[in-house]
Each structure stands twice: as C-alpha cells, then as structure tokens.
Amino acid sequence: MSLRVSYSPNYYSLDDILATQERVPCKVALTIQKMGHLNPSVAERDLQPGTSLELPLWLVSELSQSRAPLVNPELPKIYREAYREILKADACAVDLHKFSLFFYELGSHIKRFDKKQDVHETLLHTFRTRFRQLMDLADNSMSDPTVQQTLDILERKLFNDAYKARMKLNTWLKDSNTTIEAANMVINHKKRKRMNIEDLL
C-alpha cells in the first residue's frame, strides 16, 4: 500500500502537492495591492510591476493562467538551456535526485510555461533514455544498493514496483507452494514497536 499515488490531475495526490510547493522564479506584471509581504526582500505594501521574485508553483500557475496574467513565470534553473544540454548529452549519467526530487512531476507543470516545447522534449528524452537503465537496475539490484539515491521520486517508485514484481516472480518460479504471510502493515507495525522498546532500554 502506498499513500503516494500520483499523476498530475489527481486532486488528492500527496506528491503533486509537494511538487507544486517548489518555488518558481517569476516577474510581476500588474500591481497587486496589499501583497507586499509576498516579496520578503522589500517592505512595501503593494507588489509593484516588474518585481522579480520566487513564488510557489501553485500560486504561479493560478495567477499566470488567464487573459490578464498577474505574473509572468520563468523557467527554474534545472529546466533551462544549460541543464537541458546536460540531459541531452547523457541522461543516464545524471544524478536526477540532485536536480530535483520531483523532476518529472514538476517538469510536467513547468512545461506549460515554455512556449517552444523544449522542456517537454527534454522530459520525454530523459525518461526514455533512463528507463532502460532503470529496469536493468530493478532486475539486478543486488549489485549496488546505492543506485536508488540517484533517482527522482517517479523513478524510485517504478524501481520499487519493478523490484517487488521481480522478487514475486522469483519466488513463484522457485516454488508455487505459497505460504500465507502476515499483512504488510502488521509486519511494519511490529518492527516499529520493537524499535520503541529498544529506545526505552
């Protein structure tokens, strides 16, 4: 069971909520009264046009989508030309986790701010290139336990699912006489309890 089922239009998705909290640089286009506190660097009452500041993505996408956008969003650093070039060169060599924990999730929101569709292309390209490696890792992950640290959250989920499926297949191939096991949550709950007792001692 996982709490974190995510795809973009899912209103209840925890991952999506976390991803949309990331800050995006943008420029104010119209005067916004009484909202000076959104920009912590100056102490003014109103937000003046032309001010550059960073706002959470949820606010930016809300304010930039209409006929009279209040703010003009810019691309975050990791989706700009320089970083796109790195990904184009060799996506597999990149530590995506360091780029952003929600690289794809965030990218799928960000790509709307990019009229030329370059971000869209990069996301697809990156995923396609890395996917083969990801599946390889999931099937033979015994070799290196640190691989997970270079994956973003979507890849990590795929990796875990693939790994579990692989393990299930392995046990099934070995013997089809399946034992009844304690429920997942019960096992985890017990482990946690044991840890608490050790804390007390």
Partner: peptide, 29 residues
C-alpha cells in the same frame, strides 16, 4: 487592481482547501 489581490487570496484559499482535503482523504485511505 484590488481584483488582483482578491485573485491571489482566492488561489491561497484553494490551495489550503486542497491540502486539508488531501490530508483527510489520504488518512482515510
């Protein structure tokens, strides 16, 4: 231009409601 302020506040409200809803929904799940 006060409308702009109202729009910002409206976005904040929507976000807050979403957080609350998601919190309770996922706990129930």
């Amino acid at each position: 231009s006060i409308l702009n302020t109202i729009r910002v506040r409206n976005a904040v409200t929507k976000r807050n409601v979403r957080c609350l809803m998601a919190y309770h929904f996922n706990r129930l799940k």
